[in-house]
């Protein structure tokens, strides 16, 4: 079991979410930067979809009541483990009672903690993810919370010594036009890709709100509600795009001008307020 001594600014349990329930109004949710959670799980010999902890701006302290293997991926933050040794992007052993301390990342936003056996809170609709939009799944972590850890006896051995940490964050994210690019003025896609946008303070797991050149519509009126995917750049009437992340609503009524590639989506999940980002077709 793991005791949350301090969760940092915002921390939640996440796996790969609840696919397949969009038609019932259920967001997919899951790790915002899914490749980072998958990697953290591989480093400790877990299935890629095991539940871990997603930290926002680091700053967490976790006490391992029993000894266990752990790994950290995503935004690189300072790590301390009194009585042991720990670092990012490599599995490490936390002795029983050991306190894993993470500082604030210098760049990036979300750090993932995987523990061998996985965080074993009760699943809801097949997932242990905390969905900030619908409230499904476990509550955000609070001091004193005890997290059970799943069994690890049947897991394969840990075979990876270390994984390369990510390079510099890509300042340019690739988008694919559509599905509703024809709702915008002819120059709107060019405008999207011209000047950088700044990430707004009111960004969260639902979406990254962007401040920059407004995207002009060619059509007024309302779009009938339709299904949307993570990575969609939805454009409300003020013309400022919102990049949908894991907890996005499964349907939306504003036109989506373009959608990030899978790699772009993972990078978008690491954007922090004040960061500047460019888009490229």
């Amino acid at each position: 079991m793991i005791e949350v001594v301090a969760p940092g600014p915002y921390a939640t349990v996440q796996d790969l979410g609840r696919p397949g329930y969009g038609h019932l109004g259920v967001p997919r949710s899951g790790a915002a930067d899914a490749p980072s959670l998958r990697l953290a799980n591989r480093l400790v010999g877990n299935p890629e979809g095991a539940a871990g902890i997603e930290l926002t701006f680091g700053g967490a302290v976790l006490r391992f009541l029993d000894g266990g293997w752990a790994a950290l991926t995503g935004a690189v933050c300072p790590v301390a483990l009194p009585g042991g040794s720990a670092g990012m992007y490599a599995p490490f052993w936390v002795p029983a009672g050991g306190e894993l301390r993470m500082g604030a990342p210098a760049t990036g936003l979300r750090t993932y903690v995987a523990v061998r056996g996985g965080v074993d809170v009760p699943p809801v609709l097949g997932s242990r993810s905390a969905d900030s939009l619908s409230g499904l799944g476990p509550d955000p972590l609070a001091p004193g919370r005890i997290l059970p850890v799943g069994p690890s006896a049947d897991l394969p051995p840990i075979t990876v010594d270390a994984a390369p940490p990510p390079g510099d964050a890509p300042g340019v994210l690739r988008v694919l036009p559509g599905p509703r690019d024809d709702w915008f003025a002819p120059g709107a896609l060019s405008a999207l890709c011209a000047e950088p946008y700044e990430v707004s303070q009111d960004s969260d797991r639902v979406g990254v709100r962007l401040v920059g050149a407004p995207l002009e519509r060619a059509r007024s009126g309302e779009l009938p509600s339709e299904g949307v995917v993570a990575g969609s750049l939805q454009v409300p009437p003020d013309g400022r795009p919102i990049v949908f992340l894991a907890d996005h609503p499964p349907t939306g009524g504003y036109p989506v001008i373009a959608v990030l590639t899978a790699g772009g989506l993972a990078a978008a999940a690491q954007l922090r307020p004040g960061d500047r980002v460019r888009f490229r077709l």
Binding site: P19, G20, G22, H23, E226, G227, V228, P250, T251
Partner: peptide, 14 residues
């Protein structure tokens, strides 16, 4: 196919 999401005039398939 993992998602099939109908709307008033569309179906999203993921």
């Amino acid at each position: 196919v993992t998602e099939i999401v109908p709307g008033p005039a569309t179906v999203l398939v993921v």
